[in-house]
Nucleic acid binder design. Structure first.
Lengths: 233, 233
DNA sequence: AACGATATGATTTTCGAAAATGCCCGTAGC
DNA sequence: GCTACGGGCATTTTCGAAAATCATATCGTT
């Protein structure tokens, strides 16, 4: 069927609202929409070409994910950032991600192992090609997300995976926040490699510890380089 | 201001959408709307007296909470129940609730202690008054929720508390599911009392262990008495 | 009879106008 | 000068009609 022309209005089988939710989430996570920024309907209407109600639905969904802040009767705004929130998100991520990687290693099968190895491989290829500021590269971002996703994918709990995904997005926003101020990316490649090796060799304790360090040091970096952005009340 | 007449359309300062979300959540958690039941707009419109879009917003919010299942282009339905989901929710609750009670005990202050004691006191008073099938008593439900809430309230993480609250609701739905088939409520009063004592005496290990047992045995009871409802695919 | 295409009805999804609400500023009263 | 009140404007929130999509029944062909 001719779903037409230059730009398909939405992906096949999806509602416009779901599509807008996706695009809005992306813009918020990448800080293309700045933390605390008011989300007025006129502006969003123009930017996304959807009606009030459709936008409202998307904003409601993102509110539940902690990326948007709903102020009843006074509209929406991008969820503000703060040191406290960064600490909470980091703590929650450690708690859950450590548990999930343990469960994944315990229940690991061939598919899991293949997924971990291949996603890391792709990540490294992308890093080789363009070693500067990887967060600016959408491909790196996707590959990075998929590697971490693969690590926990065998945990067996869709419930916890959904929570993890939400926290990952909230943390990624902080990473983007600091990316513009960080002089050089630290050596994540080595950390990823070490995590993969621990996971593949079924060393759950080591993998858990490495993941915790990985998450915490990333957060520390954010606090270090974007600290000045975390004070606004 | 005359916000009028017989029945206020919504609570003060709240949007209709938020109000509907609240009422819908209540009906789903109490299984007044049965698991898997399709949520058609005509029906909801009549029942809640709101328009398509307002209802849609509420359903979207509840979808994010895991209480509603959105089937794109084919409407919404009450999230189905299953053994697997019950296990996941129980596991996730244990993971988070145990951690939160530890943190709460560690950071405990006077307000926390008072809240724990007084919420348990109210719970016991209600149980004395009407010892049969407490889940049918809305007051008991609220008091029960508030006691468990108080226990973890000092943990210091709004992020984890929000996740905990979501899981609590999902678990409560399973409790309601089995309430109609359970011959007699088991002795929860004693368990609550023991948890309170462990918490007040700052015995984090014991409190954590008691909470875990409490959550798991509740789930076991659900599986036992509502097992026949958890099979539908 | 079995299968596929197509029309028809039911339901969801989207839209922009209309109502409700909050905000800002100017004015009055103390 | 300062606070309280009220009008007008900006913005959000709600509504029901209209468009889009899905499910079902009907019909024609093999």
């Amino acid at each position: 069927m001719p779903d037409s022309a230059i730009r398909p209005r939405k992906e096949f089988g999806k509602t416009i609202a779901a599509d807008i939710t996706h695009r809005l989430r992306e813009e918020i996570v990448t800080c293309s929409l700045a933390p605390g920024e008011p989300l007025r309907f006129d502006v969003l209407r123009e930017r996304f070409g959807a009606s009030f109600t459709t936008l409202r639905e998307a904003l409601t969904a993102l509110t539940a994910e902690g990326l948007v802040d709903a102020q009843e009767q006074r509209g929406f705004r991008v969820a503000p950032v703060s040191r406290q929130d960064l600490v909470e998100v980091t703590d929650a991520r450690v708690l859950i991600e450590v548990e999930l990687i343990r469960r994944s290693i315990q229940r690991a099968d061939d598919d899991w192992e293949i997924a971990v190895i291949s996603t890391l491989h792709r990540l490294k290829r992308i890093e080789q090609r363009d070693p500067e500021h990887p967060l600016r590269d959408p491909e790196w971002k996707i590959a990075h997300r998929q590697f971490h996703q693969a690590l926990v994918s065998a945990c067996g709990s869709a419930t916890l995976l959904a929570i993890r995904a939400e926290l990952f997005d909230r943390a990624e926003r902080y990473r983007h926040l600091s990316a513009n101020f960080r002089p050089r990316p630290r050596d994540k490649a080595g950390e990823h490699q070490a995590i993969m090796q621990a996971a593949i060799s079924r060393n759950a304790d080591l993998a858990a510890q490495l993941i915790e360090t990985h998450i915490r040091s990333t957060a520390d970096n954010v606090a270090k380089y974007a600290g000045h952005l975390l004070e606004a009340e």
